[in-house]
Design a protein around this nucleic acid. Structure first.
Length: 283
DNA sequence: ATAGGCACCTGGTGGC
DNA sequence: TGCCACCAGGTGCCTA
């Protein structure tokens, strides 16, 4: 679930119930996720107004009135469940606590936000808002795909001479922020680039073409996430789950969507992870 | 510096 | 029904 579009979808879903509201109470139900929670996390959150919810790569940052920011990563299975918000946009009752509800934020507007993460690859930390960029987990991350620093010259430069498959390179968060296994596969399909191609041996024009394609793939997905959000009125308040039409991801053996192509989508394993592609269209 | 592999953890699925 | 192998949207860390 959580690559950039899903994280952005979650952030947008949280804005109406968290921004401007005060965390009246924070339940921290275990000492850690992927790493131990910071010292006194519950106390440092309690009574704090959330000034702003931002996203950097796959991280959500909640800037607090105290000058600290809460850093949240959803890992592989993290979810944010909203319940009982007074705006009536989501659901009206608080569902019973479930297994893996690790942190619960009780907002002063009546909303409750529950972080649920079965696999616990997620993370939370507190850092100084002013120096957030220098946080260990954020410092090395590359440009935001929708930002001005992500452009053709950059991508060409960072891929130059790289001997690694383009698939691996695009998964590397230092090259560009926010892509994961799904959207790398989708972007390479749209760019007609074979996932196993060495990153440093792709014509610069084809690398350049990846820039708008990556933006399109991500914005298409964000749009899809946003539209499904509106259906949550009668749903259970779970965010970050949306239907999206993939061209290749998870479609091994299914027909290629390209016109005039009769090939089937193939799957290979690269550094332990599945890559889906069309061997006819992608070279 | 770069590349590859492992580890962390739980749950769902499909085969026998 | 039970057991088991395998798979899953991420990424830090260790080793050559």
């Amino acid at each position: 679930m959580p690559e950039l579009p899903e994280v952005e979808t979650v952030r947008r879903g949280l804005v109406p119930v968290m921004e401007g509201a005060v965390i009246a109470q924070a339940d921290v139900n275990r000492p850690d996720l992927r790493w131990p929670f910071p010292q006194g996390m519950a106390a440092r959150l309690t009574g704090q107004q959330v000034l702003r919810l931002r996203r950097r790569s796959k991280y959500i940052l909640a800037d607090l009135a105290s000058g600290e920011s809460l850093l949240i990563h959803l890992g592989m299975s993290g979810r944010m469940l909203i319940s009982g918000d007074p705006l009536g946009q989501f659901v009206h009752d608080h569902p019973p606590a479930e297994k893996h509800d690790h942190v619960v934020f009780h907002m002063d507007n009546g909303a409750r936000v529950t972080f649920n993460d079965p696999r616990r690859f997620g993370a939370m930390d507190l850092l100084d808002t002013a120096t957030a960029d220098q946080h260990k987990l954020l410092a090395a991350i590359g440009p935001e795909p929708f930002g001005n620093d992500f452009h053709e010259t950059h991508l060409i430069a960072v891929l130059k001479g790289r001997n690694t498959p383009i698939k691996s390179a695009l998964l590397d968060q230092r090259i560009v922020a926010g892509l994961g296994n799904i959207y790398v596969c989708e972007a390479l399909y749209r760019a007609r680039i074979h996932p196993a191609r060495k990153a440093g041996r792709i014509a610069t024009a084809r690398i350049a073409a990846l820039v708008p394609i990556i933006r399109e793939v991500l914005s298409d997905a964000i749009e899809a996430g946003g539209s499904s959000l509106r259906d949550f009125r009668q749903a259970d308040g779970e965010l970050g789950y949306f239907q999206h039409r993939f061209d290749v991801y998870g479609r091994e053996g299914a027909p290629c969507h390209s016109e005039d192509c009769s090939a089937q989508i193939a799957r290979i394993v690269q550094s332990g992870r599945s890559s889906f592609y069309c061997s006819q269209c992608q070279r």
